[in-house]
Design a protein around this nucleic acid. Structure first.
Lengths: 231, 231
DNA sequence: AAGTGGTCTAGACCACATA
DNA sequence: ATGTGGTCTAGACCACTTC
């Protein structure tokens, strides 16, 4: 119940902002004033303000003070969970079936993967309750992930395996809507031309591409949720 | 050039993590050790560690120490920019054309919008270089945004207007792939059944729904990019 | 029981934007 | 020139977790 002073200050201020009592542009009391009001050190107020500023709720300007921010662009946190966890959360049985595994020499990975050296190509299908709900094509850089050469990925989807075996990385996602090709439709047990969600992810670590993956979901079997919660 | 000590500590640690020198699970030196190493107060180290922890790069456990985190689920920051800015960034001319504006009594807004009271319904088309690239259907709660009753939205897209007139809000997005209906295809100048990206956004402020919008993009004319950059 | 992170203090100095 | 945020300190106490 009794939160920290930091949280209390943040809560009080964000409550006034959300309630509309302090509309965008309003000047928030100076840090010294707030410190006096709460009977605490200015550093404590400053920490609360920094958190609010990082969340985008306020803007701080030297000499001028801190102000309630105007909502700028819509940004949201997109969670792209492991597909096995998605199925588990819905109470569905999950299964991965590998359809291809090939070691490629340097230059054989497609350009879009960005992998110049030797690579491992893996393809397969994700099933939920024995219904295919995503196909996956992936290329993994052998230079960046040497350990994957010993994995056959017959039972474990490479995404799940990589999560535990690759150090921290940067990633970029591209989300598109595409029509399923004949080959894709066959593997997903849908009609060719069906609208599908295409999710591509490039993963790299310090300028080296680690893996590129493309997942294709039938439009009616999967969607993505992104939340934006200033807090 | 000379960054703050806080930034330097963060940079040093994240560099060791990204380089693989400190793989996931590695224990990071205790805060007291780092403070001694940098010749600074522990509070400064603690602040750097808190930032790294919030970014998900490390995990802090009392008595045990701080550890390099294992990548958990893929989460990314999705930017959903104003469509006018997207066109401007590509050097295309942007135009909004309203096709409907209607004041609705309580209960007339569709259930999916979540708006129980009176609402304003607005529909229109976004053009880039005179090519339709998105259609938009929107409902705005008159109770939450009284000012919008005086707007005709003939020349300004409601999204642009709302950004500047609604206090801070929460939002949830749903991204799906769907086939264009006959009516939708006609307005987008595409063939019925074409794969389209559907972006829905519910926006609310303190439990009250503010607006619901659905935008439909032809699959080949728009995609979404989401980045994940621990920093 | 011991030792870590978590929080807070009272003060200080600086850089910078504003008046 | 002034006063704000931005950063840092040296110390303190607490809570929790692991040993």
């Amino acid at each position: 119940m009794t939160a920290t002073l930091d949280q209390r200050i943040r809560g009080d201020i964000s409550a006034r902002i959300h309630s509309g009592e302090w509309p965008p542009g309003t000047r928030i009391p100076y840090e010294t004033e707030l410190a006096a009001h709460y009977g605490c050190a200015r550093a404590t107020v400053s920490k609360a303000m920094e958190t609010l500023a990082r969340a985008g709720l306020i803007e701080r300007r030297r000499k001028a003070g801190s102000f309630v921010a105007r909502p700028h662009s819509q940004s949201a946190v997109l969670e792209v969970p492991d597909l096995a966890s998605v199925a588990a959360a819905k109470g569905e049985t999950y299964r991965w079936q590998r359809t291809r595994r090939a070691a490629l020499a340097a230059g054989e990975a497609p350009d879009i993967a960005g992998i110049a050296g030797a690579a491992l190509a893996v393809e397969g299908v994700h099933f939920a309750d024995d219904l295919p709900f995503a196909i996956e094509e992936r290329w993994i850089s052998l230079a960046a992930v040497p350990g994957c050469a010993d994995e056959d990925f017959a039972d474990t989807a490479p995404g799940t395996w990589l999560l535990g075996h690759v150090p921290w990385t940067h990633a970029r996602h591209r989300i598109r809507a595409v029509a399923a090709s004949a080959a894709e439709a066959r593997r997903l047990a849908i009609r060719p031309g069906t609208a599908c969600l295409s999710l591509e992810r490039w993963t790299w670590r310090a300028r080296d591409y680690v893996t590129y993956v493309r997942q294709l979901f039938p439009g009616d079997r999967h969607d993505l949720i992104a939340d934006f919660d200033p807090s």
